[in-house]
Amino acid sequence: MAIAALITWLVTAAGGFVMLGIWISKGGHRPGSGTRLAPGLVFGHFALAVIGLVLWIAYLAADNDGLAWAAFAALLPVALLGFAMFARWIPARRTGTAESRFPVPVVIAHGVFAATTLVLVLLAALGVGES
């Protein structure tokens, strides 16, 4: 379960990097860009996701349940911020802003893998699937 969570987390991160790269390259981070995604929201989501991933890798290396729960705790605000960005992205899809250029399949896959990661991390932290 823990390795499956790592794999889904890495796939989620790959999709996130694609969208972050598009958003930055199209000027979404610049003042006056017209973006509906505030830079604090985007970079906060990114930073907390990275912190959670580092905690998860540390959990896998040390087998410390506290690290698993810390990673899960980091994922909760990541999920909330991600949902907030998704809600802001929907009406911006046809506006010409930086985030309007996100490929829809990447957005959907990112969300599905993120939700899967959240569930797998919770299950692993609970000890489900351990031998």
Rank of each mutant, 00 (worst) to 15 (best):
A62H: 10
G52C: 02
T8K: 09
P39N: 09
V11R: 06
F113K: 02
H29R: 15
H110D: 03
L123W: 13
A114G: 15
I22M: 14
A68L: 04
W23Y: 13
A98R: 02
R36Q: 09
I108D: 05
A4T: 11
T117Y: 01
V119E: 09
I22S: 07
V107Q: 05
I7P: 01
G82T: 04
L81P: 03
A71S: 11
G28R: 10
G129K: 10
P91E: 07
I22N: 07
A49Q: 06
R30L: 15
G32V: 12
G96F: 03
L20N: 13
G28C: 11
E99V: 05
M1A: 12
I57S: 00
M1R: 09
I90M: 07
T12F: 14
I57W: 00
A49Y: 08
A73L: 13
L122Y: 12
L37N: 04
S131R: 12
S100P: 06
A38Q: 06
V78M: 01
R36G: 10
L37D: 02
A38V: 05
V106H: 10
T95N: 07
A4S: 13
G15N: 04
G21M: 07
R30T: 14
A68Y: 01
P31H: 13
A61R: 12
G34H: 10
G28D: 13
G16Y: 07
F86V: 04
G27H: 08
P39D: 10
N64I: 06
Y59H: 07
A109W: 10
L80T: 06
G96R: 03
F72Q: 00
A2Q: 13
A109R: 10
R88E: 03
R93M: 13
Y59W: 13
K26C: 14
S131W: 12
E99L: 03
L6Y: 04
F17Q: 14
A4M: 12
G111Q: 05
A71V: 00
A68F: 01
S25E: 12
A47S: 11
A5H: 07
G129R: 11
G96H: 03
E99T: 03
F83A: 10
A62K: 13
T97D: 02
G28I: 06
E130G: 14
I51L: 15
N64H: 09
R36H: 11
G66M: 02
T35P: 03
L126Q: 14
E130I: 05
A13P: 08
G34M: 12
I22A: 08
R94P: 00
H110V: 03
F46I: 04
M19R: 15
W56D: 00
A49H: 06
I3A: 14
P77S: 02
R30Q: 15
A2W: 11
A73N: 01
D63I: 08
F83S: 02
A62G: 00
S100R: 07
V112S: 03
F83M: 11
F83G: 11
M1P: 09
W9K: 11
P39T: 06
V119T: 15
A73G: 08
L20P: 05
R30W: 14
